[in-house]
């Protein structure tokens, strides 16, 4: 810990992706997002059954996919951190960055889903297993992010975070199962009538695929940036600590020698 003049922690990579790869991913993501906006808002025809509201699914579906992917990445990174042979702060940062993105995409999934549900089902919200599980997921990981924000000695805090992430992850299937059970025991699903689902083909399917690809690339890009920020913030905290120590010891020396 006696390294003075450090710029950033050097024992782990300062970013996940090589700059060239990152720029390429960012550029492709941007082009794909532009294509998505063009196709999703204008190019794709309105759906036979769902009409124009179908256009919200081009955002809702990839958001939901990324929410689940992001939390899965958090769980895997947490396991890799807990396992002694792969323990590295890299995994702690990946877990945190991915969870933050997961919470954002979960929030978007819920809000865009509600905006879609209102014209299609006539209600903003339905007590369906998927919806309730997603809402619980949102709060589970919101709590996890709050826990992460509390500083501590890196290794101890990393363990704490990783275990909290796994406790939350184990809960997801139980929540889903219990809510599904609850809803199907008491009533027949009315809003999820298969006759109402969109028949996705042609330009619509293409748009949806572009949406999924664009969002996944955006996720990768943002994950790298969030990781980078975590590295910089750790370096900053370390520097501030060292400066404080230097000031204190400097004072002590000044006090002894007149």
């Amino acid at each position: 810990m006696n390294r003075l003049n450090i710029e950033e922690p050097t024992d782990t990579p300062g970013q996940l992706l090589a700059p060239g790869v990152r720029h390429a991913i960012g550029a492709v993501a941007l082009v794909a997002l532009a294509a998505l906006a063009l196709l999703g808002l204008w190019g794709a025809p309105p759906d036979d059954r769902q009409g124009e509201a179908m256009r919200l699914l081009y955002l809702h579906v990839p958001s939901a996919w990324l929410a689940y992917l992001a939390f899965f990445v958090t769980a895997v990174a947490s396991v890799l951190f807990l396992w002694r042979r792969t323990r590295s702060m890299v995994w702690d940062r990946v877990a945190g960055a991915s969870a933050e993105l997961g919470v954002i995409f979960t929030g978007l999934t819920l809000v865009v889903g509600a905006l879609w549900g209102r014209p299609i089902w006539g209600v903003w919200w339905a007590w369906d297993a998927r919806l309730v599980t997603t809402a619980v997921l949102f709060f589970l990981y919101l709590g996890y992010l709050s826990l992460r924000r509390i500083p501590g000695e890196p290794e101890a805090a990393g363990k704490r975070n990783a275990i909290a992430a796994l406790i939350a992850f184990v809960d997801v299937p139980i929540v889903h199962f219990s809510v599904e059970w609850w809803r199907t025991l008491h009533q027949k699903a009315t809003v999820f009538n298969p006759e109402l689902s969109a028949k996705i083909e042609g330009v619509q399917a293409l748009t949806l695929w572009i949406a999924v690809i664009a969002f996944t690339l955006l996720y990768l890009y943002l994950l790298d940036r969030r990781y980078r920020l975590a590295v910089l913030e750790e370096g900053q905290a370390e520097r501030e600590l060292e400066q404080a120590i230097r000031e204190r010891t400097g004072d002590a020396v000044a006090g002894v020698t007149p």
Partner: peptide, 26 residues
């Protein structure tokens, strides 16, 4: 199902504000 479909079609003209809202928010 027919009722739901009819309601969905009737609502179609009003769906654009939701679409714009969703896309704008995202």
């Amino acid at each position: 199902v027919a009722g739901l479909l009819a309601a969905a079609r009737a609502a179609d003209a009003h769906a654009w504000p939701y679409v714009i809202g969703g896309w704008g928010l995202t």
